[in-house]
């Protein structure tokens, strides 16, 4: 906890407008994609965001990377607020923060050779480097991502590489400017199990070597537990629980996290006890509920859950949760010690 904070997100919000109704009577409804999300990442840390599809994880990252404007809130990177920065200044900041995307088949330009793909960030951000220096840098980086010898790969086109190799190139492109922060949006969800392990280990290696700070988005709890120091669990646009990975796995507090952990830990016991873990329900992000977003699927609901939005409260030094029922008798400490997990 002594390390300085690199990135801080304060009350970040994003609403999209959904148009419906007839041509003559148009109707607009707000969809809350990201709702009051706050977290911070220390230098050298990997923070994981997990959640189901549509919960706002990607939208959060895209706002942080300034690929999308926020509706409200602050994003502090090295103390500098990125919201409202001019395009010119944003470009300068991007040199220090890069992103790895989900689909390695979509994110590399099929008409460019690997060497040109990797040169591009250098052309954009390092105008003072000579061509030889740039080539040298490209070669070094390609070798750093374990595509050896680099010459074999540099003149290829993306279609001549396998999925795993492509994702490595995407990683090389992100780290070639030696940024201090990397956001990885489901970097392994498109890859096979045997290749996935290599990519995850490479990211961990690069963090060691380059002192990277990372925001790691995934929907898979076991991947997150392998990669991350801390995990934030998102549900319908809000963070419902955030804390140290081990704590989240051993003592999940929010009913949603509990269900998630129990599915991965022991699917059989989840199947036996699923009525006590989670209710069947539809997820509808257009419906603005007064209370807790999880209420329609929560087995522990009380009157207050329907009327008041729970706020993220710190329960100890390393864990915070947004749930009204935490601390009440049926979800008390005795249960936290492991009876339900």
């Amino acid at each position: 906890m002594s390390l300085p904070t690199l990135l801080e997100v304060v009350n970040l919000k994003k609403t999209f407008v959904r148009r419906s109704g007839s041509f003559l009577k148009p109707k607009k409804t707000d969809v809350y994609a990201v709702n009051n999300v706050s977290f911070s990442i220390e230098k050298g840390e990997i923070l994981g965001i997990i959640g189901e599809s549509g919960c706002g994880k990607t939208t959060t990252v895209r706002m942080i990377m300034r690929l999308m404007n926020e509706s409200n809130g602050k994003i502090l990177f090295n103390g500098q607020n990125l919201c409202g920065l001019s395009d010119e200044k944003t470009t300068k900041v991007r040199k220090d923060m890069q992103m790895i995307f989900q689909d390695p088949y979509d994110t590399l330009n099929p008409g460019m050779r690997i060497v040109d793909i990797l040169m591009e960030p250098l052309h954009a951000h390092k105008p003072n480097m000579t061509k030889e220096e740039k080539y040298q840098k490209v070669k070094e980086t390609t070798e750093a991502i374990e595509l050896i010898p680099a010459e074999d790969f540099l003149n290829r086109f993306p279609h001549q590489l396998s999925g795993g190799q492509r994702q490595r190139i995407a990683i090389a492109r992100a780290v070639i400017l030696e940024p201090s922060f990397i956001a990885a949006d489901e970097p392994t969800s498109m890859l096979d199990v045997s290749v996935r392990a290599g990519i995850l280990n490479l990211l961990l290696d690069l963090r060691e070597k380059m002192g990277l700070t990372m925001l790691f988005i995934t929907h898979d709890l076991s991947t997150a537990s392998y990669m991350c120091d801390r995990i934030a669990v998102m549900y319908q646009g809000s963070i419902v629980e955030i804390g140290e990975t081990q704590k989240i796995i051993d003592f999940p507090t929010h009913p949603y996290t509990k269900a998630l952990v129990s599915v991965v830990k022991d699917l059989n016991s989840f199947i036996e006890n699923r009525e006590t873990m989670i209710l069947d329900g539809e997820v509808d992000s257009t419906k603005k509920t007064l209370g807790c977003a999880f209420v329609s699927r929560c087995p522990h609901q009380e009157a207050v859950c329907h009327n008041v939005v729970p706020s993220l409260e710190q329960i100890d030094k390393v864990q915070s949760v947004a749930c009204h029922c935490f601390g009440s008798s049926k979800m008390g400490i005795s249960e936290r010690s492991g009876a339900l997990v």
Binding site: G164, V193, S194, A197, N201, S225, Y226, V261, K265
Partner: peptide
């Protein structure tokens, strides 16, 4: 075995996952 070794384990987080080389 390689497939099992390449899968992260929630309970045993210290297990180092290993990828299968080659294609």
């Amino acid at each position: 075995r390689a497939l099992l070794d390449a899968t992260p384990d929630l309970i045993n987080r210290d297990k180092k996952i290993v990828s299968i080389p080659g294609t």
